[in-house]
């Protein structure tokens, strides 16, 4: 009786552990999954630290001055050497982490002119008062703009919330990608490190990084 009970308890315990492990596994897989970015594969330059098996990883294009938005001209005044353009979904929960990382980045680098475009589709004007909008507006040095129906985003071929574009005075695209380590995760990450090394003059190489965020446009 005791043994049967112990065995039953043991089975129950093992089943419980198995279920937990599975759940954690699924969660981790989701966390590690970046958003889909258009044309990324053709322009990307290999990034050594990315997991080798990732089929959706984005690579940077080091030779192309602005292959995403060729007609875009950055407006730089004063001491600003670079312009950072970020597209964000007003409702994306992962973007909070991106804004936090942006805040941290701008705190260290004041030579970057930053514009954050929130894509507001027609009929969703209420998104203009979203938490992400307010959070972006609170970051010093950030110019928050509304991208009605994502017109500009489409020009930039931006797909995911939190997707950033760094230009220099010559409108050369120096960086493209996300600045968080995973979905909604703050903390040191490769994208932010790359961005910092460019604006701090430690690297001149154009770099691309994966973006963890919600998709900016509907699937169809």
């Amino acid at each position: 009786m005791y043994l049967r009970r112990s065995a039953r308890t043991l089975v129950l315990f093992a089943l419980w552990l198995l279920l937990i492990i599975c759940g954690i596994w699924v969660s981790m897989e989701y966390e590690k999954t970046p958003a889909r970015i258009a044309n990324a594969a053709a322009q990307a330059k290999a990034i050594p630290t990315m997991p080798a098996g990732s089929s959706r990883s984005v690579t940077a294009n080091s030779a192309t001055p602005n292959s995403f938005c060729p007609n875009y001209t950055p407006v730089l005044t004063g001491s600003k050497q670079y312009e950072l353009v970020m597209f964000a979904h007003p409702q994306c929960p992962c973007t909070k982490a991106t804004l936090s990382e942006l805040d941290r980045f701008l705190g260290r680098n004041n030579n970057v002119s930053t514009r954050v475009y929130f894509i507001v589709p027609n009929g969703f004007e209420s998104w203009k008062n979203s938490e992400n909008f307010k959070a972006a507006a609170r970051i010093p040095g950030v110019e928050v703009r509304i991208d009605e129906n994502g017109v500009l985003a489409e020009k930039f071929k931006a797909c995911a919330s939190g997707e950033c574009f760094l230009f220099d005075r010559k409108a050369t695209l120096l960086f493209h990608g996300g600045i968080t380590v995973a979905r909604g995760h703050e903390g040191d990450n490769l994208g932010l490190e790359q961005l910092s090394s460019i604006v701090e003059g430690r690297s001149l190489t154009a770099i691309s990084n994966v973006v963890y965020g919600c998709t900016l446009f509907d699937a169809n």
């Binding site: 409702q91 929960p93 919600c214 509907d218 699937a219």
Partner: peptide, 10 residues
Amino acid sequence: ISPYTWEGTQ
């Protein structure tokens, strides 16, 4: 904090 995950308006 993160009730939904978004794809555009979906």
